[in-house]
């Protein structure tokens, strides 16, 4: 009894309040979740049913053939292939470059490190629009417009947010390990590759996830830099379909489900890293 009493004081909701709060939260959650349910259900409707007034929640018949139709009528597999190429390249480049760069910003003492790191942080908030036009002009002189290069090459030179994320993580790795290795004659690269990297798998996982999300969702990059529809990504492809004379709205929702689903699966499998990445960006800065 005494224990419970103490606990109750520490919490600040009475049972009644708790019921009210949970109910309100539940209601709000429904609001947040309904569009997903609606999208999933609508992806199984025929167009005639989709446009009915008033709206009907459940399709009369589950039209799974929409998914087959989407594969047939949209260049889905081609766009998926393009997106996956970019995803893979960007993940590899993000991991390679940022784990390396962050090491220089955390594990080695050198003059100018801190001021330069502030520059890294400042670039996080630089709006893309400021560099967009010169990049477009620069890439066109490289003959890169209409290729994947503008969407992949910059990734090999580090990303401010990832550098920040990994640096924070590296700082929590005790330096004693590297001192010991140094006494044994290891150079910085060996310490980076054999000690720090293996210990950083959690942070690397976060980098991989965010790198995936950025590439999967990117719209303005492909819009500006790609021209040939054989290189379109899923995001750009979806937007282009909306521009067609006959956009096939029902299939666009099917595509929406197909594009959202893998992200959700990934999230549920790797929730910890998602939340960690998001939370890290906020508090330790």
């Amino acid at each position: 009894m005494a224990v419970i009493g103490r606990l109750r004081r520490a919490r600040y909701l009475e049972r009644g309040e708790l019921v009210v709060t949970v109910t309100l939260l539940g209601a709000l959650s429904v609001v947040y979740i309904v569009p997903f349910i609606w999208m999933a259900l609508s992806s199984l409707k025929l167009p005639q049913e989709l446009f009915i007034v008033p709206m009907r929640w459940f399709p009369k018949k589950l039209e799974f053939s929409n998914y087959a139709r989407m594969f047939r009528e949209f260049p889905f597999l081609l766009d998926l292939r393009n997106t996956m190429i970019l995803v893979v390249v960007n993940i590899v480049s993000a991991v390679l470059s940022n784990t390396f760069i962050a090491y220089g910003f955390s594990k080695i003492e050198w003059k100018g490190r801190e001021p330069l790191f502030y520059v890294v942080l400042a670039t996080i908030i630089l709006p893309f629009q400021v560099v967009m036009i010169p990049l477009f002009i620069m890439f066109h002189t490289f003959h890169w417009i209409g290729t994947f290069f503008p969407l992949t090459v910059p990734g090999f030179f580090g990303n401010a947010f990832f550098i920040f994320l990994l640096r924070q993580f590296y700082l929590s790795i005790p330096n004693e390990l590297s001192y010991a290795a140094k006494i044994d004659g290891a150079n910085e690269f060996m310490i980076y590759s054999r000690i720090v990297l293996p210990l950083s798998s959690a942070a690397i996982a976060t980098v991989v996830i965010f790198s995936f999300l950025r590439t999967w969702n990117d719209f303005i990059g492909p819009l500006i830099f790609l021209s040939d529809n054989r290189l379109y990504t899923l995001s750009l492809g979806a937007q282009q379909i909306m521009q067609n004379l006959d956009p096939k709205w029902d299939l666009l929702l099917t595509l929406g489900v197909v594009m959202t689903f893998p992200v959700l699966v990934l999230f549920f499998l790797l929730q910890k890293y998602f939340i960690q990445g998001i939370a890290m960006s906020g508090i330790k800065g």
């Binding site: 947040y32 979740i33 569009p35 997903f36 969702n217 995001s235 929406g256 594009m259 992200v263 999230f267």
Partner: peptide
């Protein structure tokens, strides 16, 4: 999870 929906979608 709404933050996970791709922008175009």
């Amino acid at each position: 999870i709404p933050t996970l929906v791709p922008l175009v979608i």
